[in-house]
């Protein structure tokens, strides 16, 4: 399979999970680049040019709250999950777990290990 063809499947697959990951991380407040690093530490492969617009979109949808911190040398915009965001996060997470167990039962839990070995 062509590399960029696979890339588009991957992007498709990740799209929803990234929202979930961002909401999960933002239980505590982060500024854009800080969040990027925190997510990468958790081995979530996300590009800066995906994360920054995503934060803005989630904020405009009311899932995140933001605040400019001007106390430091450079102003930074800090994001944090909102009340509505928490509700959405809870439901998404439950749905994601359900999905994961369904996928496991369909594809078989062992198979994944085989492929990576």
């Amino acid at each position: 399979m062509a590399d960029n063809e696979f890339q588009s499947f991957l992007t498709e697959l990740r799209r929803g999970s990234l929202t979930l990951a961002v909401l999960g991380c933002l239980q505590e407040s982060y500024y854009g680049y800080g969040l990027l690093q925190a997510m990468r530490e958790k081995l979530i492969d996300i590009e800066a040019n995906t994360l920054y617009p995503l934060l803005r979109r989630l904020e405009s949808q009311g899932l995140l709250l933001s605040q400019w911190d001007t106390s430091e040398s450079r102003p930074r915009k800090y994001y944090e999950i909102s009340e509505k965001g928490r509700l959405v996060y809870k439901e998404l997470l439950a749905e994601w777990r359900k999905m994961q167990s369904s996928i496991d039962s369909i594809c078989g839990e062992g198979e994944e290990d085989e492929r990576f070995n």
């Binding site: 680049y33 450079r74 102003p75 930074r76």
Partner: peptide, 18 residues
């Protein structure tokens, strides 16, 4: 807003040597 935010992010990345 996007301009301010993007600028802050880019300088953060720069400061970190990203």
């Amino acid at each position: 807003e996007v301009s301010k935010e993007l600028q802050a992010n880019i300088y953060d990345m720069l400061a970190d040597g990203a």
